[in-house]
């Protein structure tokens, strides 16, 4: 039953998109629909960037903190690894960004030292 109703919704969405000539933008629109559905279900996607792959313990800890802060039922971590960060993590939730990377700290230090005083 659930599968068929989901199929119906998907069918309806695609019909609407094709009618409005919006199939080109389908991936953006579906992404937007996904965020709305997630928001309704209390699910939050957090992008986590780090210099090295995070271990399970850290991830659990992060999830706990984030679900408390955003009072979310479920936290989905989308991880990415970039050596440019040098160390630490960068967390993005919606338009909130907490940049705890070494790269950011060094950048701030550079700004402080070159500031005219």
């Amino acid at each position: 039953m659930e599968i068929s109703s989901n199929n119906n919704i998907a069918q309806a969405i695609f019909q609407l998109l094709s009618r409005k000539n919006l199939l080109e933008k389908a991936s953006d629109i579906i992404g937007e629909v996904q965020t709305m559905v997630d928001a309704q279900n209390g699910k939050i996607v957090a992008k986590v960037g780090s210099a090295r792959i995070l271990d399970e313990k850290t991830k659990m800890h992060l999830k706990q903190i984030l679900s408390k802060r955003y009072s979310a039922k479920e936290i989905v971590l989308k991880e990415s690894v970039d050596v440019k960060f040098l160390g630490g993590v960068r967390i993005e939730v919606n338009d909130d960004v907490l940049d705890l990377t070494l790269q950011n700290k060094i950048g701030k230090l550079q700004k402080y030292l070159t500031m005219s005083r």
Binding site: E92, D95, D96, V97, L98, D99, L100, N104, K105, K108, L109, Y112, L113
Partner: peptide
Amino acid sequence: NLIKEIDGWEVEIKIEKIG
């Protein structure tokens, strides 16, 4: 001098709004 300057620096990192 550099060490002195850095000693007086406090890193302030908070949640920022990014668009």
